[in-house]
């Protein structure tokens, strides 16, 4: 069965690169660019791994994680946070919000692919 990945990222060129990379690795990739519809997208696509940017229009990434974790259905959804805010404080916020992994931008493609593979189990 194909592993599904949802990318929530408002920089479309990053989304395009990640989609290409992960598709080539055999993942089924969908994406959205608006924080406000991210939770709905999770409900609609039921991903196995969520890749989430922090600074998003509509709703920021940390708040999306908190809401997903508060919802019993997504309590265990593996979440990889990608953020240009690489400060220690943001990393801690990601952890306390319930993210599984935090990766500061800029990252290398192999790091992301390896992280997704690891989270997908």
């Amino acid at each position: 069965m194909t592993t599904k990945v949802l990318i929530v990222e408002d920089e479309l060129n990053i989304t395009e690169s990640l989609t290409f990379l992960l598709s080539r690795e055999g993942f089924e990739v969908t994406s959205c660019a608006d924080g406000a519809v991210a939770i709905q997208s999770v409900d609609d696509t039921a991903p196995d791994v969520l890749i989430l940017d922090v600074m998003l229009p509509g709703l920021d990434g940390f708040e999306i994680i908190r809401r997903l974790r508060a919802d019993g259905e997504h309590r265990n959804l593996p979440i990889l946070v990608l953020s240009a805010k690489g400060q220690r404080r943001d990393r801690m916020t990601a952890e306390t919000s319930g993210a599984d992994m935090f990766m500061p931008k800029p990252f290398s493609n192999s790091e992301v692919v390896d992280a997704v593979k690891k989270l997908a189990g």
Partner: peptide
Amino acid sequence: AVHEMLTEVTALRSTAEILADPR
């Protein structure tokens, strides 16, 4: 400004890595 720059560098790096990949 720093956030925008890091985001642009990320997109650039990721795309450049794909192009440099021999596959």
